[in-house]
Design a protein around this nucleic acid. Structure first.
Lengths: 205, 205
DNA sequence: AACTTTGAAAACAAAAAAAGTTTTCAAGAT
DNA sequence: ATCTTGAAAACTTTTTTTGTTTTCAAAGTT
């Protein structure tokens, strides 16, 4: 048996839904309808499997970001689209899986942290700089500082204490965060772009 | 040290957030800022602790139901309020904790199932009968059948596949479910009651 | 029709982790 | 000064999980 992409996607679902600890290899095999032997033929051990699944998740995001980076939108529009994708992906990261990652796969956890703190922040920093050249973002804004602020905004979604008791759709929370953030960094011209972009946007993909 | 109600509430939070398996006794002690010894002075073993926490959760619900049952509302209003509380409580039950319960504490899982399938369904059945006597619910409705339908409605909230991809607030989902359910069982007079009750209701407590 | 191959299912050993117990020790109470 | 308390940490025991191996039956092959 060959463990198709569909299978690996099922594994991701299970890991994300029940956490890495609760989802044992036996349970995984049972849910996939295959034997453990088959899993171990494709993945040396559980750690490799977990890395493959989360690495895939991260790569997906990396690719989406790269694709967006290609297109010829203005900086503000890009920034918003990228943020939307980031927020959308965040919601899959439940407290359980984050907890299990930190505890049992610290290297992978650090890799995810690094990805966010370095790669993503770097992309946003460059976007903000571009926005400044385009005259859409105010010159007083320090791109390094502000891109970290954005990272912290996305972090808020991971903390169940912050917004979840409000019982608002992610779209609403996203919208408000962007309203503050974009409003806070744009020139009058940039604000116009934000208003038109906003009108076109559809957060649920 | 005495493990105050605050502490036990923290334990509940941790169990609900991270699941029963990921939350080990060591981790629990660490988070509570006490020693395992202290925990074991109050609870013979982890099973007892888990039972205490989830028993408390269930009892809370039982008491809220009993309190509502006392007040002199009409059957429709009661039914809606009770449903609202039930839905509200449901959202705490993440896939992880349900999975861990079924796997590691099957007796407790069965007790929760029994509570919902017997006690709660019984309460709703009686309410529907009362509603029929009050002329608010149609006589063709079979209380036994319809109270089970309601149970199944609440079950839908536990399945992450059903509604969560919609990214709607619980309040919206609740409202729609009740719109269908109440609309489906009421007499014209009952429908009026539902419309006025609806206006007063505030789902976020 | 005998013979391979395949892979699920189950049994297994080895390793890891968690439960539960005991010891240590320092801070506060008596 | 002595006693008590309980966190912290060390420790043992039990349980769970991992990862491997074996069994066996169904499907395909010659």
């Amino acid at each position: 048996m060959s463990l198709t992409p569909t299978h690996i996607h099922t594994v991701r679902d299970l890991f994300f839904r029940y956490g890495l600890k609760s989802m044992t290899m036996d349970e995984l095999a049972r849910q996939l309808g295959c034997s453990k032997k088959t899993i171990y033929e494709h993945y040396a051990d559980k750690k490799v499997l977990v890395h493959a699944v989360l690495g895939g998740f991260l790569n997906e995001h990396r690719n989406e970001m790269a694709a967006l980076d290609q297109n010829p939108d203005n900086a503000i529009a890009k920034l918003i689209r990228m943020a939307a994708i980031g927020f959308q992906k965040m919601r899959n990261l439940t407290p359980t899986i984050l907890f299990d990652l930190q505890k049992s796969y610290p290297e992978l956890w650090m890799e995810l942290e690094r990805y966010r703190k370095e790669e993503i922040v770097e992309i946003f920093k460059r976007l903000i700089e571009r926005g400044q050249h385009e005259g859409l973002i105010r010159k007083e804004i320090d791109p390094s500082v502000v891109s970290i602020i954005h990272l912290q905004h996305t972090n808020l979604l991971l903390d169940p204490v912050v917004f979840s008791h409000l019982d608002r759709p992610l779209a609403t929370i996203f919208h408000n965060i962007m309203e503050v953030f974009v409003g806070g960094i744009t020139t009058p011209q940039g604000l116009e772009v934000w208003n038109t972009t906003k009108a076109q946007m559809n957060l649920q993909p």
